[in-house]
Structure formats: C-alpha cells, structure tokens
Simulated scan of single mutants.
Amino acid sequence: MQRKDLEAKKRHHYVWANYLTRWGSGTKKVFYTTKTGKVAHDSVRAIAVDDYFYKTTKLTDKHVEVIKGFSRQSPDHLQQQHMSYLNDCLKLQLAEDIYNQSSVQNEEFELHLIALKCNLLENLHASHEEKALPIMAALADEQLDILQDNQSIIEFMMFFGHQISRTKPFRDGIFKTQPRRHTLEIEIADAMIHAWWFLSYMFGMNIGFNLYAGRHKDTHALLINDTKIPFITSDHPVVNVHTCVSETELVAPEQADFYYPISPRIAYIICNSDRFTRGKNAVNETTVSELNSKLASQSMVHIIGSTEDAIRPFRKYIGRRYCKPLIDNP
C-alpha cells in the first residue's frame, strides 16, 4: 500500500463538497444542473470538480515578475505573506531542477514531487475548510455570536475570500476580461493563466483580509429564509449581489454586497450598501428569488438545490455573465 504522503490527489473540488451536502437533505445527493442544462440528482462528489485543477506549474522569471507585480499592490504585511508562500514554492521547484540535472534516480522522491504538485494548494484549501467547519455549523444554526470571537472572524473571512477566488467561474471570468491589445498585455495574460494556481490563492488572501479589515464599516448579516422558496447555491457560491453589478457583462463593480448561501434556509451577506441591518434579517420570497437569480447568473454550469423544483425556475439565468445561457426557457 502506498504511503499517504505519496498519494497525488487528482480530483480537485473548487467548491467545498462538504458545504454542498447542506442541500442534500441529510444525504450526499443534491439536485443540480448539468453541462447541458438538465437537472440531475447525484453525489456532491460529481459537482464543481476538475482533474488537477490546483496542480502547480513551473514558474519562470516572467511568471514570478507578474506575481510580484500583483503582490506589490497589497499592504506590506500581505506582500510578506505572498512572498513567503512563493519562496516555498520556488524552493520546491529548485529541488526538482537539481534532481533532474543529477544522475540520481529515486522513485520515492519522484512520487513525493508529484504528490506535492498535486496536493499543495488542495491541502491549503482543506486547512481553511477545517477551520471554517464549526463556524459554518454555528451560522447554519443561527448562532451569529460565534463571530464575536476575533480568531473566528479572521478564520471565516479568510475562508470566505477563498470561496470567491478559488472557483472555475472566477478564474475563467478573470481570463476573459484580461486585455490582449499589445505584446506586454498578452505576456501578462498568458503568465496569469500559467500561474493562476498561485495567483488565485494570493487573491483569496487579499479578499479575506479586506473583508476582515472592513468588518466594522461593512454590514455583516445573517439572512433567515422561512419562505416556500429555498436558497440555492452554485459552482461559484459567493456572489456580489449589489445593484451596481451587471448580470450580463463581466465588468468590475465599484461596490460589493457579497452573498453566500450556507443552507437552503440560511445565508451570510457582507454589504457595502445599507440594504440589510447587522445581525439577523428575515427575507421574503421576492428577495429570495432575486438572490437565487443573481447567484445563478454568476454561475457557469451548476446551480444546486435541495429539490428539483428549487432550481428549475433559475436555470434560465445560468451563465449569463459568461456566454449564452444554457436554458432559453424555464
């Protein structure tokens, strides 16, 4: 039997599978839309997952230059964290180069390298998920007080930031909006594609810190849904539902109301606007339908619900920001 530390993880979930089970009514099966827009009922293991999605790639000087360019736009303490992670990755890369240039052949070392490349980012996300697990459980039970603890709000905001930046829809949306008007822009866009595994994690750190730093200015609220229309979720579960956000175009909004459904009944929102008040807010069917449609419009393939009826009305909105919707008619 192969050692655990030598096992390369192939199936990378860009939306936390454990999170999706909250729509499983006590099981691991949920209702979701497929690539053809049909509704399926299957395990969460089949949703929002790609082979080797987080696998690391070799970084050249150009890739490192682009990473550092983005990092320099961050506060000093975040730049230090970025560079610490980057240096660790470059040390691993150097070790591989030295090995490849030597005449030594070691199967265990090679397996270890492959495992590190496949598992590094996946394991980082898993560590954030583990820390967020009791917080998510408490919020699903309306225990908003858990975020009064400073360490808990730090962990949750870091987790929250990565739920935005780690997904395939976020990645593809960023790639689609990168300008390619001249040689330099093309080089930067190509470097971002190659180094996205690192950039996505770096961006998640930045988003999480900004949300934590702005926690006293922004409105943090729990939305309680006791209507007949349950909340749904998607392959991009944290979306900006501020009124300034376009539902049909990929343009950078000036403000953000970050909405994150936690279960069919509970959602968390961080608002620049004054739409909700701090604490717990009961929502009506009109609001639930609006939030579901905005979440669906910023999804790429999958919207996920506790029943088929919960997602069927929102299929027509899927992918509106990325391409022609999957479904023309409800």
Rank of each mutant, 00 (worst) to 15 (best):
A138M: 06
N119V: 06
E107W: 03
K228L: 10
I207H: 01
S165F: 05
N123I: 05
H112R: 14
K176A: 15
F198E: 00
H236Y: 03
I114E: 15
E108C: 07
F160E: 00
G161Q: 09
Q143A: 08
K131L: 12
I146V: 15
Q151G: 03
G214H: 10
N150V: 13
H125D: 09
L120Q: 01
R180C: 06
H194R: 07
I114F: 06
N225L: 04
H220F: 15
D149Y: 11
F209V: 09
M136F: 03
S103K: 09
Y201P: 00
I153A: 12
A137G: 01
L116I: 08
G204L: 02
I114T: 13
P237R: 03
I135L: 15
A140H: 12
E122W: 03
M192I: 15
I154K: 10
H216E: 14
D226K: 15
A191D: 03
K168Y: 14
P134Y: 09
L211H: 02
L223G: 01
A126M: 04
N123A: 13
F198V: 06
Q105Y: 14
V104C: 05
L113S: 02
L113K: 02
A195C: 09
I114R: 14
R215H: 08
M202S: 15
T177W: 04
M157L: 14
I188V: 15
S103I: 07
N106Y: 07
H236L: 01
N123W: 02
P169H: 00
D141Q: 13
L116A: 07
F209M: 08
L199P: 02
A132C: 09
P134R: 07
D218Y: 11
A195T: 07
I193G: 10
I232F: 01
Q105H: 13
H236S: 12
A137D: 03
E108V: 09
